[in-house]
């Protein structure tokens, strides 16, 4: 993950994360990979797309594929509501949208605050978890967007 330092102290860069909610947990992604956050509009389904692809949206003339993050993370799906958002992200591969329950805030963390908890992210099903960080009373789960999909899946995404 190419975290961008906005400040550095003794080689410990500060990174900014956009946090969002999925189920009961809070996740964070590098703010530099977030292009914008949209309210949920009409998502046109694409026949033959993988199960985690909700469909496509027209973003100012550009077609953007929207991923159902809950499905991708192995969480139960839920009805979209007023809090639901599509976060437009730019990974190393391409621009996609990820549907999340809600977007919370932008937080700053020092890189050293991100702890790679034992075994977290080692499983295939949680490989996109970079680590966790303590925030107030909760734990923030830091996501590496570049690992959200495999290379093959990113390639597959390009055809939509």
């Amino acid at each position: 993950m190419s975290n961008t330092a906005v400040e550095s102290a003794a080689g410990d860069p500060v990174i900014q994360l956009v946090t969002f909610r999925l189920k009961e947990e809070t996740y964070g992604i590098n703010v530099m990979q977030v292009q914008e956050v949209l309210r949920v509009t009409e998502i046109a389904p694409v026949p033959g797309a993988p199960g985690y692809v909700l469909g496509i949206i027209n973003l100012r003339g550009n077609v953007v594929t929207v991923i159902d993050t809950r499905t991708r993370f192995g969480l139960p799906t839920t009805e979209r509501d007023d809090s639901s958002r599509i976060v437009i992200i730019e990974s190393e591969q391409q621009v996609v949208g990820i549907l999340v329950d809600s977007v919370a805030e932008v937080v700053e963390l020092r890189q050293s605050e991100i702890d790679s908890a034992p075994s977290i992210g080692s499983e295939e099903s949680s490989r996109y978890i970079q680590g966790v960080a303590s925030r107030d009373e909760d734990l923030l789960i830091v996501v590496d967007l570049n690992r959200l999909l495999s290379e093959e899946e990113w390639s597959e995404m390009a055809v939509f």
């Binding site: 009961e24 993370f73 969480l75 702890d115 099903s125 949680s126 966790v132 303590s134 734990l139 789960i141």
Partner: peptide, 25 residues
């Protein structure tokens, strides 16, 4: 405290807990 459940975790992982300032699996 409530355990923080990381999405995609295997069945043997109940979740994470902050304990003495750091996450415990």
């Amino acid at each position: 405290e409530r355990l923080t459940g990381v999405a995609g975790r295997p069945a043997w992982q109940l979740g994470l807990l902050r304990y003495r300032g750091r996450p415990v699996l």
